[in-house]
């Protein structure tokens, strides 16, 4: 036991003589600050680039007052076996769609939303949502949501509507 005591005492004294407490603080501090800054740079930039078109989310995607549904006129696919981005099984997403912008209250930005209808089955009947913001009369057909957008699909039977995020709106 005595051998251990003397060995450790010797090593501790040696260490104390060869290093300073400030030196330890300096290197430890350098490590903490440097370590925090260096890996953050590229990661933070990558995250910022990715987040450019990714909105901060809040709210229930199966509820009509969810922000992406600002111009919907139809049944929400999330209540029909699909989601806000996907069609329910047995239906086909129309490649032809009407597009508008919605304001996201969480991050305060406007996003371009594509309302792709899901087609091929009769009306879903669940979660009817009629908000119509930005809806225009049929003489502006590209901005009218009263028409069935089941165009370019094998069947023209309307089932439900998705709200696919296309990008961030351009603001001057």
């Amino acid at each position: 036991m005595k051998l251990f005591d003397s060995l450790f005492e010797k090593r501790t004294r040696q260490l104390a003589q060869c290093s300073s407490r400030r030196g330890l603080l300096k290197s430890l501090g350098g490590l903490l600050v440097g370590g925090a800054a260096i890996p953050l740079l590229p990661v933070a930039r990558a995250a910022a680039a990715e987040g450019a078109a990714r909105p901060l989310e809040e709210g229930d995607p199966n509820s009509c007052d969810y922000w992406r549904y600002c111009a919907v006129d139809g049944f929400l696919c999330g209540c029909c076996g699909g989601s806000m981005n996907t069609c329910p099984p047995g239906t086909e997403m129309s490649p032809i769609t009407w597009i508008g912008t919605c304001h996201n209250p969480v991050d305060g930005r406007h996003y371009v939303i594509s309302y792709n209808d899901c087609c091929g089955k009769s009306s879903c009947g669940a979660c009817l949502c009629v908000r119509d913001e930005g809806d225009r009369p049929p003489y502006r057909p590209d901005k009218a949501n009263d028409i069935s957008w089941c165009l370019g699909t094998r069947s023209a039977a309307y089932h439900c509507t998705t709200a696919v995020l296309v990008g961030v709106a351009f603001e001057e």
Partner: peptide, 22 residues
């Protein structure tokens, strides 16, 4: 701005990559 205007006024029918449909 041009890309945004394409999204808002053209893309709904001409599709995002300009392939068209039907």
């Amino acid at each position: 701005r041009a890309h945004y205007n394409y999204q808002m006024f053209c893309q709904g029918c001409h599709t995002p990559d300009g392939s068209g449909a039907g």
